[in-house]
Design a protein around this nucleic acid. Structure first.
Ligand code: MN
Ligand code: MN
Ligand code: MN
Ligand code: MN
Lengths: 232, 232
DNA sequence: GATCTTATTTAGACCTATCTAAACATATAT
DNA sequence: ATATATGTTTAGATAGGTCTAAATAAGATC
């Protein structure tokens, strides 16, 4: 029936999907290499394989784009990831800053049965931590993200944090995965889903200054663009 | 520090440990091949690698024996396995016949942190499903198995089922892993931890006939030797 | 103890995922 | 339009885990 995708391939497909969310069009070799933490030639050879298996359409020097099958796999893994994260927080007392790496491994190794049971225990949620939408069980739909980015707001506005992204575009325009320490720091200064912040000013270089009950905090552009909020 | 053991190596070490429990002395290439579901040459080459890494002592044509390091890894994986099985049953409503395969995969992929949280949720138990002893967190001790084997009892005795082994020595003297259907069948005829059976007779070839509220059931030697009980 | 049988190892191959160094293509700047 | 810089692919190598076919060692039988 469906071609088999190894764990590693699943990660490539998931990351192609995630990069593509940020960055419409084809996904480049170097963006993927950065995200996957491997060399560019490694990516090239993998893209060829993924293309042969029909998961993606790959054009030399142009980049990769998911096909229907590849997207289904990406959504499947993303669903696992977000369900696992939420489960670990709600049922095993993890802090939201600690679950990402655990989920990044387990996402490839839970059975469909365990996925169902975890989803069920959580009440079959449509959103995971920080409002990240969870693909539906049949992998046909994924809730739309209704939020805006903190970095797009202007001085004086008050917003509610909805979501702190795990993956974002870093300072050199390279995608990266935020690590626990970074998430922890943001938590410490009160950048936590559900909490409010006021935009104090937007300084040069897109630096943004926000305030909350923990005081005033300056965030660089890349960071403020990775925090999703809702205006009130 | 410690040499790295891949997932596959972890399974070899775990299975060397388990075979050795049944069968004192060195573990043979063919027993391991059977248990792992791979060819004999594959095992030979893996035993050489495990020897080079210091996990086992391997002598050509004589078989393998775990070293301290290899045993620690085996116990670690076994601990994960048994904690996961019990967690799935107690917290996610799995039936005890369904969890083995799930645990066989997940045992390699949970972090030490998740292991601790799972153990904690279960009250840091010393025994898993069917009374299978769980190695301690520091991997130095494992509770002793106080049970006897159903197949060692005589007609007239009444025993309580303590444990239905997942791994046992099959009819051709080859170790095998019991599958869900088999566990399910045993469950259906009332061979379930905690339940009593009376030994009705011991027939030729070690065939044993037992009775309980579900009626009379005949079990072949290999099966009766894989069911641990306590006399009352 | 010579012979037959069975267990084990050796040899040689393949597939996956990765790397570095070198070649080449595309995009940018002068 | 040419030169330069950057991004991408090709080439060739390595390591892990597996296989089948063939050689060889150990164990069992007579
Ligand atoms: Mn992953
Ligand atoms: Mn799934
Ligand atoms: Mn396993
Ligand atoms: Mn552990």
């Amino acid at each position: 029936m469906r071609e088999h995708a190894s764990d590693v391939m699943q990660d490539y497909l998931k990351n192609i999907y995630l990069i593509n969310r940020e960055n419409e069009g084809q996904v480049s070799t170097s963006d993927l290499a950065m995200k996957m933490g491997v060399s560019a030639p490694t990516v090239t050879s993998m893209l060829v394989k993924l293309g042969d298996k029909g998961f993606i359409t790959y054009e030399k020097y142009k980049g990769a784009k998911l096909n229907t099958e590849g997207e289904a796999i990406a959504l499947e893994i993303l669903r696992h990831h977000r369900l696992i994260e939420r489960y670990l927080v709600e049922f095993l007392g993890y802090d939201w800053s600690e679950v990402h790496e655990e989920a990044d491994v387990l996402e490839h190794h839970i059975s469909e049965e365990l996925e169902r049971r975890i989803a069920n225990a959580l009440g079959n949620p449509k959103y995971g931590l920080y409002g990240a939408p969870i693909p539906s069980e049949d992998l046909t739909s994924i809730a739309k993200d209704e939020t805006t980015k903190l970095g797009e707001h202007s001085a004086g506005e008050i917003v509610v944090i909805e979501r702190v992204k795990e993956n974002y575009i870093g300072s050199e325009n390279a995608p990266r995965t935020r690590d626990s320490e970074e998430l922890q720091y943001l938590a410490e200064i009160g950048i936590i889903p559900g909490k409010q912040v006021k935009i104090e000013s937007v300084a040069p270089f897109g630096m943004i200054k926000v305030s909350n009950e923990k005081g005033e905090h300056s965030l660089p552009k890349e960071v403020s663009m990775s925090i999703h909020v809702r205006e009130i």
